[in-house]
Design a protein around this nucleic acid. Structure first.
Lengths: 231, 231
DNA sequence: ACATTTGTTATGTCCCACATAACGACAAAA
DNA sequence: TTTTGTCGTTATGTGGGACATAACAAATGT
């Protein structure tokens, strides 16, 4: 048996379960038939028979698609195709405690990449009203001092930025990533402070150009980037 | 009953199925018990009894967790906790045909945000070997002329960029987003060409600074950004 | 015309049975 | 002693049947 340990490049036989196969078949089926959202699907018994599996197996696969939001089911009415919630599945597995360290680091970086790359969208879509709201958030910051408020405000500020970007998917992304980000940050002892604070970013948004903002955000997040060097 | 139809903001009672509830309970259970990957879980019958549901319902929920990679099951051995594949679920629903138009647009923007924000990571981790490989890809581009090759090469070039970023999650992200990107691009008639081409970006990576690259990538993707204005 | 009742039907849930693979223990062979 | 083969045990994988329930549709009554 000692020899087996030395054998490399041999995966332990990917034993697929029927539900796995059926899930793929169903997805292909939906794609191939080019169903539109709202279209009715065959009933469970018909599908089970067509696929040659029991209703049990079929329902396991359907349960998956249902979780992903690809289908919706109602008694008597049957199943209809729906628009999947592409981020819904994401949320379920985004727990800092069960994600391995390197992926955690990856996600941490991802947030930094997003916020520096967001400048284009911001300048494309920001309104005076948006900037005013952002300024209000930044102002409140100076009135309080406790730690929990600081974190909440940090979230509010950056959240508002995502909102201004006008990208709903991006916004939801941020909401999901925040816990992760918090988790990583709180692992460090002292709060990190960049050269440019929130008020500074607001000032740039009001009077500066897009390049200025990129530099500003870069400076704001610089301490976080510095942490990554060790990787 | 007519009154009910006028009430807005009231979803028609999210009729949760047992599998939905059990799924949540299971996830909470796993989190609360702070299982580590590799830890063995109770067997199906025990879980079903503890939750007060039939084995069928439990298995539907388990099937979902299994799909997300949160658990692995083997006959006789039972179930063990695993590291979820955070992007696996994503891939399953990322089909341009079933995603609604606005989300498609969001994702399209997301890619642009990622690639402009990636500059920091690139300059943090690029090696001479990386840049040389990138140059090879850019060089091949000039030798061919057919459309399919152009697209493949486009993918190879930008894919290499993600690779250099050293962020595995980012890289997988790009692979998933590419079909979407292609889909949106091919909706347009003529190929889009920015002021800075691939060779230009390589030149910047070799001799220029990080700010230069940001500007370069910005110019390279500018035509795409211009498309977004109409939104 | 409208409200009520009744019937039908597809999903939701449960239960039982058996197949199958993998583990563990033990025995046989080297 | 170490390896190899056998076999029973066991937890998951799969199949099939039954009934409950909600929702739709048609028939009925006012």
């Amino acid at each position: 048996m000692a020899i087996q340990n030395r054998i490399t490049g041999l995966e332990p036989v990917a034993t697929q379960t029927m539900a796995d196969v059926v899930e793929v078949h169903l997805r292909d089926y939906l794609k191939k038939k080019s169903f539109k959202p709202g279209d009715a699907l065959p009933k469970e018994l018909e599908l089970a028979e067509a696929l040659g599996v029991s209703r049990n197996v079929l329902r396991e696969a359907l349960s998956r698609l249902r979780m992903l939001g690809m289908i919706e089911t109602k008694k008597k009415t049957g199943m209809v195709l729906a628009r999947p919630d592409i981020l819904g599945a994401f949320e379920r597995v985004l727990d800092p405690l069960i994600i391995d360290q390197s992926t955690l680091q990856d996600i941490f970086e991802l947030r930094l990449v997003l916020e520096t790359g967001m400048a284009e969208l911001l300048y494309l879509r920001k309104t005076e009203k948006d900037v005013a709201a952002l300024e209000q958030i930044a102002l409140k910051e100076k009135q309080h001092n406790d730690e929990t408020f600081r974190i909440e405000n940090e979230i509010a500020f950056h959240g508002k930025l995502y909102e201004i970007s006008g990208n709903q998917t991006l916004k939801r992304f941020q909401i999901m990533l925040l816990p992760i980000f918090d988790y990583v940050v709180t692992l460090e002892k002292k709060p990190i402070k960049g050269e440019v604070d929130h008020m500074g970013l607001v000032r740039i948004l009001k009077t500066g150009g897009i390049e200025d903002f990129k530099k500003g955000m870069q400076a704001h997040l610089q301490p976080h980037f510095d942490r990554l060097k060790s990787k």
